[in-house]
C-alpha cells in the first residue's frame, strides 16, 4: 500500500485523475450503492441548509429568508456579549460532564451485567424492563420528579425513615443539587435504552472465545476485562465520540419541566435560554446563530474525539 502511495504522489495530476477514474470504475457497483445516500443528503439536508443564513440576517416571523436584511455578525456579537448566555454554557457543560461520567458509563456496566445473566426468561424480562423508562415523556416524568422531590415526597419520606435527615427539604429549590438531579434522572430514563446497542454488539461475540478462556482458567471478571470489553471497543469509542460531540447539547424538555425560579441560575442550559430568549419572542435569528455556533463547536469536538480514539484504536470509527 505504502509503495503505491509513493508512486502515486510522483505522478502528474492527469495520471492521478486517470487512476482515480479507473479505481472508481472498478468500484462502480459499490459507488452505486453510496449514490442514493448522497442524493438523499443533497436533497433533504443540503438544499434546506441555506436556512442557516438567517443567523446573519435580521429575520422576523413575517419575513421570507430572501427578504430579510443582512446584518453580518451582529447576532453573534449579541450572543457572545451576553453574560447570561455564558452562564447557560457553564451549566450545559457541567450537566453534560456529569452525564458523560454517569450516563455514559452506566449503560456499559448494565449491558455487561445483563449479558452475564444466564439465558432465559429472567434475562429477557430484565432487559425489557430496563428500556421501558425511555418511553416516559419528560412532561410526565418531570411532574413525577417534582412530586417525589417535594417536602412531602417519596425521597424525603425514605430519608426521614432512615433517620438521615430531620426536616424535609424541597430538593428542586436547592440549586446546588440541580446538576445531580438532572444527570441522575436522565440516566434512570435512558440507561436501559443505551444497553441495546451494546447488547447487539455482544451478541456477535464468538462464544468459543469464552470457552477458550475458561479452559485457561480465567474467572468471570477476567473474561469480561479480557474478552467482552476489548471486543466492544469500537462501539464504545463510537458512542464516546458522539457523546463528546454532544457536550454542548442539552435536554430542553427536561430543563423546562424541572427548572424553577430558585434553581434557574444552575439549571438554565443553552437550549432553554435560546428557547426563552429567542423562540418564544419570535427571534429566529438569535436562535439560529446560537445553533450554528453550537454545531461548529460540536464538529470540532467530534473531529478531536475521533482523532484521539482513532489513535487508541488504530482505526477511526467514522
Amino acid at each position: 500500500m505504502k509503495k503505491t502511495e509513493q508512486k502515486r504522489t510522483g505522478n502528474s495530476i492527469g495520471e492521478k485523475a486517470k487512476l482515480f477514474a479507473k479505481d472508481f470504475r472498478r468500484q462502480l457497483p459499490l459507488q452505486m450503492m453510496v449514490l442514493p445516500g448522497i442524493i438523499f443528503m443533497i436533497i433533504f439536508c443540503y438544499m434546506p441548509i441555506y436556512g442557516l443564513s438567517i443567523a446573519f440576517k435580521s429575520y422576523t416571523v413575517i419575513d421570507t429568508i430572501d427578504s430579510a436584511d443582512w446584518v453580518g455578525w451582529y447576532n453573534f456579537k449579541i450572543v457572545l456579549g451576553d453574560k447570561f448566555f455564558w452562564q447557560s454554557v457553564v451549566n450545559t457543560l457541567g450537566i453534560s460532564f456529569l452525564k458523560l461520567l454517569i450516563g455514559f458509563t452506566t449503560p456499559i456496566l448494565l449491558s455487561i451485567m445483563i449479558y452475564e445473566l444466564r439465558d432465559g426468561p429472567f434475562k429477557r424480562v430484565i432487559q425489557t424492563i430496563s428500556y421501558l423508562p425511555h418511553f416516559l415523556s419528560w412532561i410526565v416524568l418531570g411532574g413525577m420528579l417534582i412530586n417525589w422531590l417535594s417536602t412531602t415526597g417519596l425521597l424525603n419520606q425514605i430519608l426521614m425513615g432512615l433517620g438521615l435527615v430531620e426536616n424535609p427539604t424541597n430538593f428542586l429549590l436547592d440549586s446546588g443539587k440541580y446538576w445531580w438531579i438532572a444527570s441522575l434522572s436522565d440516566t434512570w430514563k435512558e440507561a436501559g435504552w443505551g444497553t441495546v446497542l451494546y447488547l447487539a454488539t455482544m451478541a456477535g461475540i464468538d462464544p468459543t472465545y469464552y470457552e477458550a478462556a475458561r479452559i485457561d482458567g480465567a474467572g468471570r471478571l477476567k473474561q469480561i476485562t479480557s474478552i467482552t470489553l476489548p471486543l466492544m471497543r469500537t462501539i464504545i469509542s463510537l458512542n464516546f465520540i458522539l457523546t463528546v460531540s454532544g457536550l454542548l447539547k442539552s435536554n430542553l424538555d427536561q430543563t423546562l419541566v424541572l427548572m424553577n425560579s430558585q434553581n434557574q441560575a444552575r439549571a438554565e442550559v443553552i437550549d432553554s435560554y435560546v428557547y426563552r430568549m429567542g423562540l418564544t419572542q419570535g427571534d429566529f435569528s438569535y436562535a439560529t446563530a446560537v445553533g450554528l455556533g453550537v454545531s461548529v463547536v460540536s464538529v470540532i469536538l467530534l473531529v478531536t474525539a475521533n482523532k484521539i480514539t482513532g489513535k487508541i484504536n488504530e482505526e477511526s470509527v467514522l
Binding site: 411532574g143 417535594s150 424541597n170
Partner: peptide, 12 residues
C-alpha cells in the same frame, strides 16, 4: 407557606 408551592407545575 410550603416550599412545594414554589416548585409545583401547573398540573400540581
Amino acid at each position: 407557606i410550603s416550599d412545594d408551592s414554589f416548585t409545583d407545575d401547573n398540573t400540581a
